[in-house]
Amino acid sequence: MSEIVPESIPLETAGTPVSAVMIADPFTCLASATIADVVRIMTERGVSSLPVVDEDGFVVGFISDGDIMGAVAQHRAHTLFTGGDASMLYFDDMSFEERVDQLKERCVMDFAVRKVVCAKPEQSIARVAAMLSKKKFKKLPVVNDEGALVGVVRRTDIVKHIFAKMFA
């Protein structure tokens, strides 16, 4: 499920569109990919996050290296109830390597954010920058009117644009 950067953010609506600084044809992964597939793509492509798309190119999620690290670092607590007043709490005793091994064949959608904030190509850089700043996101997928992925805009792309304007 995608959410478009709202027009209610009180900024100018004119100005340079995000399409001027976005990366067209970004790296993605399919919703059917495993975490091992995602880590391979991120490593080979030198990126820290990926839009997750369905077979038709529509954004269905977003996965970052932080999502994967959180899954690997997670210790699970288990409670044993003995039927009386006493119960026992214990934590899994898997090693880091064992958790990584269990994680690699899991589906990306088990860990991806499903409610993804997206930008539209015609939205102003200022509006998208405000959303990136407000939500503390590093990048946003850019989708067309139908919701298909057409690009990605990163904070670094916007900052480069700002510097180009300042020091032109």
Rank of each mutant, 00 (worst) to 15 (best):
T82E: 13
A130L: 05
Q102M: 08
L132M: 09
E97D: 11
F96S: 01
D110K: 09
V142Q: 02
D85N: 09
Q74R: 15
A73K: 01
I125N: 03
V53K: 05
L140E: 02
I63A: 02
S48H: 14
Q74Y: 12
D85G: 12
I41V: 15
A33P: 01
A126H: 14
F96L: 08
M109A: 05
F27V: 11
D54P: 05
E105S: 15
A33Q: 00
G151F: 07
V72Y: 03
K135F: 11
V52M: 02
S124Y: 11
A33G: 03
V60I: 14
A86R: 15
L140G: 02
S124T: 07
T43P: 00
D56F: 10
A33E: 02
D93E: 15
V116L: 02
A126I: 12
L103G: 03
V59H: 06
K115C: 05
V38Y: 04
V59R: 08
V100I: 15
I125V: 14
F58L: 07
V52Y: 02
I125K: 05
V47R: 03
I41C: 10
K120E: 14
M109E: 07
I41F: 00
M69P: 00
A148K: 15
M94C: 00
F96I: 04
L140Q: 01
S87C: 04
G151W: 06
G151V: 12
C107I: 12
G46C: 05
S124C: 06
A130C: 12
L103M: 08
L89N: 12
K134Y: 11
V38E: 08
C118F: 04
L103Q: 04
A126Y: 07
M69C: 11
A129R: 04
V142Y: 06
L132N: 06
V116N: 05
G151L: 09
G84C: 10
V150K: 08
F27N: 10
G84D: 09
K136V: 05
G70C: 08
A148N: 14
S32G: 10
I63Q: 02
C29M: 11
I68K: 03
I63Y: 00
D67W: 08
L103I: 06
T79G: 06
E105P: 10
T28E: 12
E105R: 10
D54A: 09
V60R: 09
A130I: 01
Q74D: 09
V116T: 06
T82P: 00
V128I: 14
D85P: 02
V142C: 02
